[in-house]
Simulated assay, not measured.
Amino acid sequence: MLGIEILLREKRVLNGKIALVTGAGKGLGRAIVESLHAHGAHIIAVARTEVDLDELKTELSDRIECWPLDVTGDKLVEQIASLGRLDILINNAGGNRPEPMIDVSDENLDFILDLNVRSAFRVSRAAAQVMTKQGSGAIVHMSSQMGHVGSPGRTVYCMTKHAIEGLTKAMAVELAPQGIRVNSVAPTFIATPMTEPMFEKPEFKEFVMRMIPMGKIGQPQDIAEAVLYLASERSGLVTGHSLIVDGGWTAQ
């Protein structure tokens, strides 16, 4: 009986925790929501597209509330700041507009910086204010393998993800005395609706496969499992760390 109780406890390692996930509607965000929910968390799912959130609400039914908000706007940080409690923040929202560095417009530069860096900082700041009052919390930033290396056609994206890695370390050091852990997950290219058009191009898929020693494309659940580890007490002494989930890309 004791063994069964331990297994059940392990299955729901986030029982009673409140977790906010940005970019929750599709791809990695949706997989993360499903994983955290399956392990007992109450979810606050944030996405711009209401229909995606409605699908999540129908699928999970309980322990979920949906905020159809833009991470770059003021309303989200105001609502986070008003929370009485927040145990976990998954800063997942982000994007890219791949193009050669010399062709990057100021419009695209500002768009990616605003979405990938400025919004991540503002959302984290609001969450940290709540977590500081309660003396505990876990923040997980969605970084990228591109936060550790460079790649042609992705200069702005690489810059923003290197910034996220720096933010992760600085926040981890500053917030540790308040009982808040801050880490990042750094995926390789994962099979999602966003990357599907990319993989339809044979030359791109061949490039990616050549760069991954394990020889396979990552799945959303691979990232969800990494996030679950960093969000839970399984990683109770881990902070300021980047968990690279890239099949060996950056080890070369």
Rank of each mutant, 00 (worst) to 15 (best):
V71Y: 04
V71K: 12
T72N: 07
T72I: 05
T72F: 00
G73M: 12
D74P: 02
D74A: 15
D74T: 14
D74E: 15
K75T: 12
K75W: 00
K75M: 07
K75S: 14
L76V: 05
L76M: 01
L76K: 04
V77R: 08
V77I: 14
E78M: 06
E78I: 04
Q79M: 09
Q79F: 04
Q79L: 08
Q79E: 13
I80D: 01
I80F: 12
A81Q: 01
A81I: 02
A81C: 03
A81L: 03
A81Y: 01
S82R: 13
S82F: 09
L83E: 03
L83S: 06
G84Y: 07
G84C: 05
G84D: 11
G84N: 10
R85E: 03
R85I: 00
L86T: 10
L86D: 09
L86I: 07
L86H: 02
I88L: 14
I88W: 06
L89F: 13
L89A: 01
I90M: 14
N91C: 15
N91F: 11
N91K: 09
N92G: 03
N92D: 01
A93F: 01
G94N: 10
G95L: 12
G95W: 12
N96F: 15
N96T: 13
R97L: 09
P98L: 09
P98R: 09
P100E: 08
P100G: 06
M101K: 05
M101S: 15
